[in-house]
Write a protein that binds this DNA or RNA. Structure first.
Lengths: 254, 254
DNA sequence: ATCCATCCCGTACACTGTACAAGGAGTGCT
DNA sequence: AGCACTCCTTGTACAGTGTACGGGATGGAT
């Protein structure tokens, strides 16, 4: 029998979910519980960011000492992994359905996914660090797969198509959420922060040459509404591009 | 005059590059130098990952104490930000050119970008944490912009199109590099690691239901060559989807 | 000789994740 | 009743982190 501590340190362990199938449940004297721990961790991550989460602070918030947490969890990283899967539950698979136009389903999924990333800015770096395999994320993945299946693309092309759509959503949501985080940290609205960034950019003679062609583009964009509207419109348009691309491939039978 | 330490802690400072325009250069008695520091940091990041980089270890490698580094740099995060921009230089903007079919240029850029992310697995989490504004990254951005400009898309759609392509590349490169990192940490080849992951997945009754439709897909994919080939083919195909989508939008005048 | 900028280092502080061993609370068995 | 046993919680301790602060060392200019 492998001890929990050894399991946690095994580099081959790719996800808590694959090895630790029987989660420790049931609350003890302190009313502790893995779900409660993860929920508190998410609150703290939302409020203070990835670096703001520490075992001691988390434990204090739960009225307990740091080491108590280790009864329910092998590692701090495990908490984060549980938290990552937990927020995937905000994308309700049931609300998407398994029938209807695949375009609509894909768009809804993409939108929900993006919103989730923006709501939890700490998610983006995590998605690049952990495997994101858990009951909730897998459920979402299944919906995505179903939507792609119904496009009519050949089987061996589906993973690529899934990538094309959802890696894009991930990347887009990342940029957006990081931008919002920066603006919030600077104590500015998104719009003034955007303006400030632009001005800083333009003023910097060091980059003038390379930046010149881009300022035109950014100015144009800035005159088309608030930053929020820009995000939404850009995202919708990019999704249209992807859907159009998929339709072309389907028509080509490729 | 704002002191360096205050500047570093100013939450409004979005990038070292925007505020710290006159980099401290020139080597002192110990032969130290910001370029040397950043180069050593990249080596260490490549070898030991994001968590493996510490000021003390980095200093030791340079034959110096930790605090010496702070003469050339305000913060550890700054080193990472310099490192991030530095690896963008691996995508040679000159090699891409500004003429020729935009499709070819886009594909080359995407491929180089992806390779860069895979070469430096620590880059992906960073891209989600920092702004990636620096001379090298801006130069790459300019090439991307030029390629998109030549598609014939209307000006106000270009940012969206850039997002669609490069957020996808970023997301894709992230998944790929993380997968490779996991495999390496587990001491397996990519192929056996892929097989192991599949088996673990399938064996796990807890997720059977949601996973069932996906195993077919994964099996199909596994039978189509090595993991490396799968990455390449998936990526190329997804790029085709995007290019096709852009062409449709151009044709629609949208 | 003095001053000053530049560069480097030793020490110290608050904080991190977590290993380890000891304790308490509850339950069931004898 | 006493004992054993499992489940949960805690105190202490360690090695490591980023970096603030003050003090040297060096070399060139005056």
């Amino acid at each position: 029998m492998v001890k929990a501590a050894d399991r946690a340190k095994d580099p081959a362990r790719s996800s808590v979910w694959l090895e630790n199938r029987a989660p420790r449940r049931g609350s003890g004297p302190a009313g502790l519980d893995r779900d409660r721990i993860v929920a508190a961790a998410i609150r703290m991550l939302d409020a203070e960011g990835l670096n703001g989460l520490s075992m001691r602070k988390l434990a204090t918030e739960l009225g307990v000492t740091a080491m108590s947490l280790y009864w329910y969890v092998d590692t701090k990283d495990d908490i984060i992994e549980y938290a990552v899967d937990s927020v995937y539950a905000e994308i309700d698979p049931a609300a998407i359905g398994t029938t209807g136009d695949w375009r609509d389903r894909l768009r809804t999924l993409a939108l929900e996914y993006r919103r989730m990333l923006v709501r939890h800015p700490w998610m983006s770096p995590c998605a690049g660090k952990y495997l994101n395999i858990g009951p909730n994320s897998v459920a979402v993945g299944a919906r995505i797969h179903e939507a792609i299946r119904d496009t009519g693309l050949p089987v061996h092309r589906r993973p690529s198509a899934m990538s094309a759509v959802f890696q894009f959503v991930y990347g887009y949501g990342t940029i957006e959420s990081q931008f919002q985080r920066r603006a919030a940290e600077a104590g500015m609205s998104q719009d003034t922060f955007y303006g400030e960034s632009l001005r800083a950019f333009r003023d910097d003679a060091q980059f003038m040459e390379a930046l010149e062609p881009m300022t035109e583009l950014l100015d144009e964009r800035a005159s088309h509404g608030s930053v929020d509207e820009i995000w939404d419109r850009d995202f919708a348009y990019a999704l249209d591009v992807l859907v159009a691309g998929i339709e072309v491939m389907v028509a080509r039978g490729e």
